[in-house]
Design a protein around this nucleic acid. Structure first.
Lengths: 296, 296
DNA sequence: TTAAATTGATAGATTTTTTCTATTTGACTT
DNA sequence: AAGTCAAATAGAAAAAATCTATCAATTTAA
C-alpha cells in the first residue's frame, strides 16, 4: 500500500525540483526526503527522478506519479471540504421522512419555519407510509422521520412530538354542531382503507371505548384523506380525518367539523431516529426545532 | 495527512459492516481495526460508524469518506497499471525527435523497421530544428533525439550513429558524372539559408580544405532541401544536399549526383539523450535498434 | 431466564517505521 | 585545486503500528 505521506513528499520534491527545498518546506530533515523517495521508487519499481547532487529531473514514471498523485490529493482535499460542511451548523443538508399526515400537513410547516431561521440549510422531505419511513431511518437514508405509530425496535427512539385530533367531518350545510355518540351509528360514513394510520387509530379508539365498528353505517371506502374530503364536500356522507387536514376547508366553510359528545379521538405523532446515531450540528438543530414546535 | 492504510481498513469495515471480518480479511488483529477507525475519526473530526458490539452502521460522514476513499484507491490502482505498462518491454510509448534530415529521411525508416519487430510499441516522432530537439531532450519531453551537430552540454550524451554524405546535385541532363574541384567555382549554385545544418556542414568542410565560399558562384538561396531539389530539377542550377534526400530522384533519373574529384563531404548524425537518464525497457530496445541501424 | 457465543473496546508490550543528527560523497564554481 | 552546495549513507532516537490478553456489551440458545 502506497503511503500518502511519501506521495506528499514526492510531490513537493517534484514541484521544487529539489530535495532540500522540499525538506524545509515540509519541516523534515533532508535525509528523510531521500529515504521517502527511495522507498517510493522501491515500492513502485520505477525511478522517479534522474538525479545527482546538483539536479533533480522527473523521469517519465515521475511525471505519471505526479499527475495521479495530485489528483489523489485534490480528491482528499475535496473530501475534507465536504466533511467540514457536514460539521458546520450553519449550512448543510437534512433529509427527513414523513408518513402521510405529518408529511403533508405538519412537516411542510415545520420546514418553512425552520428555513426562515436557517436559510442555508437545505431540507429534503420524503413522504411515504410509516413502514417505509422507518426502514429509511434504519438504513440512514434519512436523518429522522415523523410517523403516527410506534414500532417496537430497540435501535429506534420514538419521541412523541405532536398531538392531533381525528374529527368527524360533514357537509357545510349539516345543521348540528355536535351529535350524541348514538347518532353516529346512523350517519352514513366513508371509511379509509385498512392500511391507513388514521383509520387504524380511529378503530383502536372505538375498541377502547368498547364500540364495535360493525355497527357503524359504512357506505364506502376512500383511498386517501383528500378523497374523503372531496366526497364529504359533495354530500356523499361523513368521514373521520385528521383535524390538520381540514383546517383550511373548515375556515372557508367548505366542510363542517361535527363534534361527538364525550368523545374525542386523539392521536400522537412521533419523531423517530436511530438510538445510536450521533447527530451532526444541523441535525441537532432541526431536531430541537421540531421539539420546540411540539404541542405535547 | 490522512493515512491510506487506515483508509483501506475503513473501506473494508464499511464493506463487510464488521470490524472482525475486516480484521481477518486484512490479516490484522481486531484491536488494530478499532484503533485505526478511531484514529480516522479523530483526524477527520467526524464519527464514521454508529456502532456497538453488534452493529456497525456507516454514518453520513462515513458514506462520504467511503465514496471519496474508493475513488482514491481506484486512481492509485489506475496509476499502478500505467506504471506497469511503463515497465513492460513489449508495449509502450516512445517519443523521439529529429532535426530535418534525420526526422525526414532517417527516422521514418528506422521507425517503420522497429514497428515491424515491435508492433505494440507506439513511436511518436517530432521534427524540429536541432536546438528544439535538444531542449526537449533536456526537459524529458522526448526520450531521445537525432541531430546533425554536437552541442557542448555535460548532461547530454551524443552518440554518432549515422554517416551521411552531402552531394552535389544537378539536372539529369548534365553530361559529366564527375567534375574537378576547380569547375565548382563556375557552376551556378543554390545555397541554403544560414541556419541550415547541411549548409553549415558544407561550409565547415570547405573551410577545412582551405576554400573560401565567396569564390563560389552562388545564384540564389532556398529555404529547404525540397526547394533546392525542385529548383535543380527545373534547371535553375546546382545544389548541395544530403544524399539521403535524393535517393529516390537519382534512381528515377530526375536528378543527377555529380561527384567532385578528391572531394567527399561527410557529415555525422548523432543520437542524443540525457546522461543521467535511466531508460525504460522500451526505450532501451529502441536505442539498441538505432545503434544496430547505424552505419558508423 | 440464564449461559454461551459473538463482537467491539481497552491496556500494555513488542515490533516496525519514521525521523533525526552527524558525516560522507559527488558535482559545480571560482 | 579549494570551496561550496546538495544529495546519500549510517546509526541512534522517537513515534507508530500491531499484537496478545482481557473486558464489556449484546444477542442467541438452552
Amino acid at each position: 500500500m502506497l503511503d500518502l505521506r511519501k506521495l506528499e513528499v514526492f510531490i513537493k520534491v517534484y514541484e521544487t525540483q529539489s530535495f532540500s527545498k522540499a525538506s524545509s518546506a515540509l519541516h523534515l530533515a533532508q535525509p528523510t526526503i531521500t529515504l521517502h523517495i527511495k522507498d517510493l521508487e522501491q515500492e513502485l519499481e520505477v525511478n522517479l527522478f534522474d538525479r545527482n547532487t546538483r539536479k533533480v529531473i522527473p523521469s517519465k514514471a515521475g511525471k505519471i506519479v505526479y499527475r495521479y498523485g495530485k489528483e489523489v490529493l485534490n480528491i482528499l482535499k475535496q473530501m475534507e471540504k465536504e466533511l467540514k460542511l457536514l460539521k458546520d451548523e450553519k449550512v448543510g443538508l437534512i433529509e427527513i421522512g414523513g408518513s402521510t399526515i405529518p408529511g403533508q400537513y405538519i412537516l411542510p410547516k415545520v420546514i418553512k419555519n425552520f428555513k426562515e431561521h436557517h436559510p442555508n440549510i437545505s431540507v429534503f422531505l420524503k413522504v411515504g407510509d410509516s413502514k417505509e419511513v422507518i426502514e429509511k431511518v434504519l438504513a440512514r437514508e434519512i436523518d429522522f422521520g415523523m410517523v403516527g405509530a410506534v414500532f417496537a425496535n430497540k435501535d429506534l427512539v420514538f419521541l412523541p412530538c405532536y398531538e392531533d385530533e381525528i374529527v368527524l367531518i360533514g357537509p357545510p350545510d349539516f345543521t348540528k354542531d355536535e351529535i350524541e355518540l348514538e347518532e353516529l351509528y346512523h350517519i352514513p360514513l366513508l371509511k379509509r382503507e385498512e392500511g391507513s394510520g388514521t383509520w387504524k387509530n380511529f378503530l383502536e379508539f372505538l375498541d377502547k371505548k368498547g364500540i364495535d365498528w360493525i355497527k357503524l353505517n359504512i357506505i364506502g371506502e376512500m383511498g386517501s384523506t383528500e378523497a374523503i374530503k372531496e366526497a364529504v364536500k359533495s354530500g356523499l356522507g361523513f368521514g373521520f380525518v385528521s383535524s390538520l387536514a381540514v383546517e383550511l376547508e373548515t375556515s372557508l366553510k367548505l366542510l363542517k367539523v361535527v363534534r361527538i359528545k364525550n368523545f374525542t379521538i386523539k392521536r400522537k405523532f412521533y419523531v423517530v431516529y436511530p438510538k445510536m446515531a450521533k447527530f451532526l450540528p444541523v441535525e441537532h438543530k432541526f431536531l430541537d426545532f421540531i421539539k420546540s414546535f411540539s404541542n405535547v
